[in-house]
C-alpha cells in the first residue's frame, strides 16, 4: 500500500471550515436584506402618512404624495395581468398539451427562453415602436379615435404613452415568465390523469379543461403572482415608452396618462435633495408592503390549495 492517509482530524477541519464559509455567505445575504429594510424604514417611515398616499406630485417635498403613481400602478398592472396571464397559460397549454414533439416546437421553446432573457428596457423599445407609435403609421396626422374622450371606452390608435400601452408593455415583459411557469405547472400533472381522461373518450381540449388545467391551477396561480410582482416593480420599459410624466390626475380610461410607483421612486431618488430621498423611501415602503402582500397570497395558495394529485 502506498500513499499516506490524510488525518481524519484534518478532513473534519476542512468540513468544519466549509460549513463556516457557507454560513458566512448565508449570513451576508441575510444581513444585506436586513440592512436594506432597516435603512429604508429609518429614512422613510417619517414621511409615511395618509396625506402622502392621497396627494399628487409636487415640487415641494412636504406636499408631495403618491396618489397618481399608486393608482397608475394599479391600472397598468391590472391590464398587464388580464393580458399576460391568459396568454401565458394558453401558450403553455399549446406547447405542453397539443404540440407534437418536433423541430418547430423546440424552436418555439428556445425562443421563449430567449425572450425571458431579453432586458426589460429592450421590451420598452419594442413597445414604444409598436404600441405608442404604431410603427409610425398615421404619424403627423390626427390619431384614429373611437368613442368620446370623456368615456371609459375611449380608444385611440396609436395608443400614445397611455395606461393601455403601459399594460401591454409590462405584459410583453412578463409573458415569457408566465409561459415558463405555466408549462412547469402543467408538466407536474401526472401523465396517468391525462391517460385516464383520454381513455374515457375525452378530446385533447377536454383533457386540458377538465383534468390538467384544474390540477395545475394552484401552481399556475402562484407563478402568475410571482410574475405580477415582477411587473409591479418594473420601471425601465415604462420609462422608455413615456419618460417620466408628472401626472396630476388618476387614470379615468384606457387612454389616460399615467406614472407608476417605481418611476416615481426613481424620480425622487435621483434628485439631490435629502427631503426627496425621504419621499422615495416612503414610496418604497408602500411598494414593499404591496409586494409582501402579493407574495403572502402566493404562499397561502401554495400551501392551502395544493391538494395531492396522486395518492
Amino acid at each position: 500500500m502506498s500513499g499516506s492517509v490524510i488525518p481524519t482530524a484534518r478532513r473534519l477541519l476542512a468540513s468544519r471550515l466549509f460549513l463556516t464559509l457557507c454560513l458566512a455567505a448565508t449570513t451576508i445575504a441575510i444581513l444585506l436584506l436586513g440592512a436594506l429594510l432597516v435603512s429604508i424604514a429609518i429614512e422613510g417611515l417619517g414621511s409615511l402618512s395618509w396625506r402622502f398616499l392621497d396627494s399628487f406630485a409636487s415640487r415641494k417635498a412636504a406636499q408631495a404624495g403618491i396618489k397618481a403613481p399608486l393608482l397608475g400602478s394599479v391600472w397598468v398592472c391590472a391590464i398587464c395581468a388580464l393580458i399576460a396571464v391568459p396568454m401565458g397559460i394558453g401558450t403553455a397549454i399549446y406547447l405542453e398539451e397539443f404540440a407534437k414533439r418536433s423541430r418547430i416546437k423546440r424552436l418555439i421553446q428556445l425562443n421563449v427562453s430567449n425572450l425571458s432573457g431579453v432586458p426589460s428596457i429592450v421590451y420598452g423599445i419594442l413597445a414604444l415602436a409598436a404600441f405608442v407609435r404604431f410603427f409610425g403609421m398615421g404619424s403627423g396626422d390626427e390619431p384614429w379615435t373611437l368613442g368620446n374622450p370623456e368615456s371609459f371606452w375611449y380608444l385611440q390608435c396609436p395608443l400614445g404613452p397611455s395606461v393601455l400601452a403601459g399594460g401591454f408593455t409590462l405584459a410583453l415583459v412578463i409573458l415569457p415568465i408566465m409561459i415558463i411557469a405555466s408549462q412547469e405547472a402543467l408538466r407536474a400533472v401526472p401523465q396517468s390523469l391525462r391517460q385516464g381522461a383520454l381513455a374515457l373518450g375525452s378530446t385533447r381540449w377536454q383533457v386540458v379543461r377538465l383534468v390538467t388545467l384544474p390540477a395545475a391551477m394552484p401552481t399556475i396561480m402562484t407563478g402568475a403572482i410571482l410574475a405580477m410582482s415582477r411587473a409591479i416593480g418594473e420601471a425601465a420599459p415604462l420609462l422608455v415608452i413615456g419618460g417620466f410624466l408628472l401626472v396630476f390626475q388618476t387614470p379615468t380610461n384606457l387612454m389616460s396618462d399615467f406614472t407608476v410607483l417605481p418611476l416615481q421612486i426613481f424620480n425622487w431618488a435621483g434628485r439631490p435633495q435629502e427631503d426627496f430621498h425621504k419621499l422615495a423611501a416612503a414610496a418604497i415602503i408602500v411598494q414593499l408592503v404591496v409586494l409582501v402582500a402579493f407574495n403572502s397570497i402566493a404562499i397561502v395558495i401554495r400551501q392551502k390549495l395544493q391538494r395531492p394529485l396522486q395518492s
Binding site: S192, L193, Q195, G196, L200, G201, Q206, V211, P308
Partner: peptide
C-alpha cells in the same frame, strides 16, 4: 367514439382529483 365503446383500466389507479361522484360522472358528461 371508439374509447366510449372500449373502456380502459390502468396499472396504477388514476382517479381524478375530484369527488367520487364527479369521477364516475366524468365519462358520461363527455
Amino acid at each position: 367514439d371508439l374509447r366510449r365503446r372500449v373502456g380502459m383500466v390502468f396499472q396504477k389507479p388514476n382517479p381524478f382529483p375530484k369527488s367520487i361522484f364527479d369521477n364516475v360522472a366524468f365519462g358520461p358528461r363527455l
